[in-house]
């Protein structure tokens, strides 16, 4: 039922935008008309996609509790373990404040350090909101590329950290807990009604929180679409910008802290003014995947050298993604 409504609404987007434009006596040939069309077509489109993706994620969450993920990863070796961990990192539900308990919980169940890092990196890096936005504004190819590269960074970074054998740089009390897991809390298995309810609750909490940011972002994007010269940012962050513009964007993004929703208006504004997609994506990933507050929390369980390694390996991965995007698109 809900699915049918969703598909019908999605199919009606373009005709709806066209007729709304006609009603306002505007045509797409004028600047104002183009800006208005962009706004009334893209807003419902992005919101619909976001609702769809977030709902599916909410349902998937009921299948993959963190306890389940841990059981799946326990005792895995580097390699396949990293691939599984990164994939599970995208779909396992947990809030950022759970990152540390999760980290220790994984280690204590015998999940190798490198595999645990793949999980922890993938989770914020491949973000469902960013995925929906890329899908809506740039098409499925860009969204798929983002997903694939995000996974690649998480897998590779975890492999590198695992190979470096940095267990001695865990805080001592954490190290003592490695592989000592006793019986853990086992959550009840939900039925299908509960799974759908969880999907809807997820939509309510995520979409309910981010829609003003998206609206604002698209409004800014629409205004820019018609008026501000498109190459405004091109010389600093565009494709023909010097090679250092990408590392600079990542360096600015790493200490910054924002969730995906807050960064969206900035991303849209930058793109609208001619910044290259790879540079903007790298900036966005560095803001949401690495942050100063997170490092401070991680300091409780990791010694400084391991934190520094973690941050630089992830930053290097993000840089790589940025260069690949700029080269391909």
């Amino acid at each position: 039922m809900g699915l049918a409504v969703w598909i019908a609404a999605y199919a009606a987007l373009e005709p709806f935008a066209d007729s709304a434009l006609a009603l306002l006596a505007l045509t797409r040939q004028t600047r104002l008309g183009e800006a208005v069309h962009f706004f009334i077509y893209d807003t419902p489109k992005v919101l619909l996609l976001l609702t769809g993706i977030v709902f599916v994620m909410g349902v998937i969450h009921t299948f993959i509790a963190p306890e389940r993920t841990r059981a799946l990863l326990s005792g895995r070796r580097l390699g396949l373990g990293n691939v599984m961990a990164a994939t599970l990192g995208i779909v396992t539900p947990f809030c950022s404040c759970s990152a540390v308990p999760l980290f220790i919980g994984f280690l204590s169940a015998g999940v190798p350090l490198g595999v645990t890092f793949s999980f922890l990196i993938a989770a914020p890096m491949v973000n469902e909101i960013a995925l929906a936005l890329l899908f809506g504004l740039f098409g499925w190819k860009v969204a798929a590329l983002y997903l694939g590269l995000g996974l690649t960074v998480a897998i590779t970074a975890g492999l590198v950290i695992g190979r470096m054998g940095m267990e001695e740089h865990l805080e001592d009390w954490v190290r003592a807990m490695q592989g000592t897991q006793s019986a853990a809390f086992d959550p009840a298995k939900p039925c299908w009604d509960e799974r759908v309810a969880s999907g809807l609750a997820h939509v309510k909490s995520i979409v309910g929180k981010v829609w003003p940011y998206i609206l604002l972002g698209i409004a800014v994007g629409a205004a820019i679409h018609g008026y501000v010269p498109e190459d405004f940012m091109a010389s600093i962050m565009g494709k023909e910008a010097p090679w250092w513009s990408l590392p600079a964007a990542v360096a600015i993004g790493v200490p910054m802290y924002s969730n995906a929703a807050g960064i969206i208006p900035i991303v849209e504004a930058l793109l609208g003014k001619g910044a290259a997609l790879g540079t903007v994506l790298a900036f966005m990933m560095s803001v949401i995947a690495l942050s100063l507050p997170e490092m401070i929390i991680l300091r409780k369980v990791l010694k400084p050298r391991l934190i520094a390694t973690f941050a630089s390996v992830v930053a290097a991965g993000i840089l790589l993604v940025g260069y690949v995007f700029n080269a391909l698109l």
């Binding site: 539900p93 999760l102 919980g105 204590s108 853990a184 809390f185």
Partner: peptide, 27 residues
């Protein structure tokens, strides 16, 4: 306190413990 949280075997917070027994975790 992280060590105490971990001692309950809870990985995703918030967790709820009633009379020493974990009844809920994650959300």
């Amino acid at each position: 306190d992280l060590k105490e949280i971990m001692s309950y075997g809870v990985m995703s917070t918030p967790g709820v413990v009633i009379n020493g027994k974990v009844v809920h975790a994650g959300g």
